[in-house]
């Protein structure tokens, strides 16, 4: 069978749910963050494959935006994690249960 849109979409769906599983199951803040990146990447792949199979570049522009936003988000998020670690000496979500620092 020729590889078409569905093949790519199945991959993105699986990748997205893997990321979701990571966010739910893992306890390390950084690994959760990586799983979020995985989900974003799944979305990227879906957009690129849609753009390819509908002969339209708009999807790729969206991916470009997503990558940029993700880079900014990672920078801010990691700075927050570092700041949090300085206060609490931990990066496990189970130890970060208070509402106040």
């Amino acid at each position: 069978m020729h590889v078409g849109l569905e093949h790519y979409l199945v991959v993105t769906a699986l990748l997205f749910s893997l990321g979701l599983l990571g966010v739910i199951a893992r306890r390390n803040l950084l690994v959760i963050y990586m799983s979020l990146e995985l989900m974003l990447n799944a979305a990227n792949l879906a957009l690129v494959s849609f753009s390819r199979f509908t002969d339209n570049l708009n999807g790729q522009v969206m991916v470009f935006f997503i990558i940029t936003v993700a880079a900014a988000e990672v920078a801010v998020g990691l700075a927050l994690i570092v700041a949090l670690y300085r206060k609490k000496q931990t990066a496990h979500v189970e130890d970060l249960t208070t509402m106040k620092l």
Partner: peptide, 19 residues
């Protein structure tokens, strides 16, 4: 690699460069 297969060459490069 998948991006390259989808002929999104620029994004493939940016993906590696940025991510």
């Amino acid at each position: 690699g998948l991006f390259v297969l989808l002929h999104a060459f620029f994004l493939a490069a940016v993906q590696i460069l940025v991510y």
